[in-house]
Computed example of a mutant assay.
Amino acid sequence: MTPNPDPAGRMRLCAVVPTYNNAGTLEDVLMRTYRVLPDIIVVNDGSTDDTQRRLAASPIPVTVVELAENRGKGYALREGFRKARACGYTHALTIDSDGQHYPEDIPLLAQEALLHPEAFIIGSRPLKNKNMPQANTFANKFSNFWFRLQTGCSLPDTQTGFRLYPLSGIRGTRWLTSRYEAELELLVFAAWQGAELRPVTVRVFYPDKEHRISHFRPTADFLRISLLNTALCFGAVIYGWPRKLFRRIRNRKQ
């Protein structure tokens, strides 16, 4: 198992798994995650399918945070991080419950975090992977462009939900959105604060279209992403870029 392989005690790692109506894939994700990382927090984001019953009957010992109604992935992650801190964890690995990510790749992120305990470790998917929806590829490239403009940093995959966060690095962060684009927001704020962002190549699985479950709403979600990017661009002008310039000047004087 990969759990907390740090003899110096710098890292106590758990998995945070937000889920919404993914009962059909959740059990497999949890079982495979448990084999490499047994400390798991599941945030049931108001699922209306069989998720709650399956979690109650699961043979895997997981901590469950139940939300009475669907609040969005960003809100679910925030509740998961809050629970992780309350349980004494220093780092949280996030993984989606739809089966897209390979839990077997968790050790790749964990080992990188051991070498860089204050960094944000980003599991980067190959954008040309077989069966990857064209809409996903476009959305990722679109997001990568705006991220580079807002922060001056380049990442190969700013849309991935497979990440490892130092919980101290997101403490006190004010979230602008509660939906899935909050993950982009977290990266932008981390870059503005001068955090190290380290991509790690991971595998990705996309089932055939007829077996794929997606909660993406093209019109509403694209509008919300556009509004967020507008706000972040404004924030970059008045906060992000000046802070980065100040940091450069200070480093030159040292």
Rank of each mutant, 00 (worst) to 15 (best):
A23Y: 11
Q254C: 09
R82C: 13
I238Y: 14
E69V: 11
F162V: 11
P38K: 06
F234V: 12
A191C: 07
V17G: 01
T63G: 07
Q100Y: 00
I249W: 07
Q150M: 15
I95K: 02
R174F: 05
A113D: 06
R179E: 15
V237T: 08
V202W: 03
V16W: 01
N70S: 08
F162G: 02
G161A: 05
G99N: 11
A92M: 09
F147C: 11
R53Y: 06
V16T: 11
P3K: 04
F145R: 13
S143Y: 04
N140D: 08
R224L: 03
Y239V: 09
T219N: 02
G24Y: 00
T48C: 11
N129W: 06
Y89R: 06
L223H: 06
L186Y: 04
P199I: 06
V237H: 00
W146K: 05
N251H: 11
M132Q: 14
L186F: 02
A57W: 05
T25V: 03
P18E: 10
L186P: 00
N129C: 05
R125E: 15
G194T: 06
A182P: 03
M1W: 08
P5N: 06
R250L: 12
V36D: 10
P5Y: 04
P133T: 11
L127D: 11
Y34C: 08
P242C: 14
A236S: 13
T51H: 03
A76L: 10
S226K: 09
N251D: 09
A139H: 03
N21W: 05
L77Q: 02
L167V: 03
A23M: 04
V200D: 01
T94G: 15
K83C: 11
Y165V: 13
R125S: 14
R247C: 03
T219F: 09
Y75C: 05
I170G: 01
R198T: 15
H101C: 07
K83Q: 15
F145N: 12
L184T: 04
L155T: 10
V65M: 05
N22H: 14
N129I: 06
S214R: 10
F142K: 15
D157G: 05
G123H: 05
M11P: 01
D208S: 12
A236R: 09
Q254W: 07
G99T: 10
Q150D: 10
P107M: 04
I121E: 01
P207K: 10
Y239N: 12
L37Y: 01
R224A: 15
F234C: 08
R163L: 15
A57Y: 06
N4G: 07
K244T: 14
T158I: 04
R252I: 00
D39K: 10
M31F: 07
K130N: 04
Q159D: 02
L13M: 10
R203Y: 01
L245N: 04
T151G: 10
D39V: 02
A135M: 08
D98H: 07
I95L: 13
P218I: 13
A182D: 05
P38Y: 12
L149W: 03
T173I: 10
T19Q: 03
V17D: 00
A68G: 12
I170T: 08
G46H: 02
K141G: 15
V204L: 00
T90Y: 05
M132L: 13
V188S: 02
C87W: 06
R71D: 08
T19M: 01
V188E: 00
D28S: 13
H215N: 13
F120R: 03
T151Y: 07
V16N: 05
